[in-house]
């Protein structure tokens, strides 16, 4: 729902800014986590035919799936996790990165994560879900960029 509407309406930078503003209104960490959990619940269902071993994101303590396909010049992502916090963070990442061109994806660092106080989710900890998802999104961008260049 909102994720798609917003990403169509906003540039990639605006999408990040909007997330940061949204979190500015929230109070202490319990409110932030409640909001993230809500976003997680609202993440559109992951297409079951994409729930494949090859779409599993490695290096997460929770189970995470990510698939991407080209829609014109943009990459559209679907993602899922069995942990609600991770689902919510993924929902935020998709608001920024889904429906963007490979160039946009590759030139945009996930600054919103630091700005909303979720930087620990991008730590070096191997158990971390979001870090691995964003890496995988960038890998998709590199792959699709290479493909469109050779065509």
């Amino acid at each position: 729902m909102t994720a798609e509407v917003l990403s169509e309406a906003l540039t990639i930078d605006k999408a990040q800014e909007e997330i940061v503003e949204e979190f500015d209104y929230l109070g202490d960490w319990t409110e932030r986590y409640k909001h993230i959990a809500d976003l997680g619940r609202k993440l559109p269902p992951f297409p079951e035919d994409q729930r494949l071993e090859e779409n599993k994101v490695k290096g997460c303590q929770s189970q995470v799936w990510l698939s991407g396909h080209l829609n014109g010049k943009q990459i559209v992502f679907d993602a899922d996790s069995d942990a609600l916090i991770v689902r919510g963070l993924i929902a935020l990442a998709l608001r920024v990165y889904s429906g963007r061109t490979p160039e946009e994806i590759l030139s945009t660092p996930p600054e919103f994560i630091n700005k909303i106080g979720m930087s620990e989710h991008l730590s070096a900890n191997r158990a971390n879900g979001l870090q691995a998802v964003i890496k995988q999104i960038k890998r998709y961008a590199v792959a699709f960029q290479a493909r469109t260049e050779t065509e």
Binding site: Y33, A37, Q61, S62, A83, L84, I85, V86
Partner: peptide
């Protein structure tokens, strides 16, 4: 109904160190 990872994340905010996995 709550994933262990989610519990670990919340407990960490409270300064509680446990392991999930």
């Amino acid at each position: 109904g709550i994933h262990p990872y989610d519990i670990g994340t919340v407990l960490d905010q409270e300064g509680i160190a446990i392991r999930t996995g």
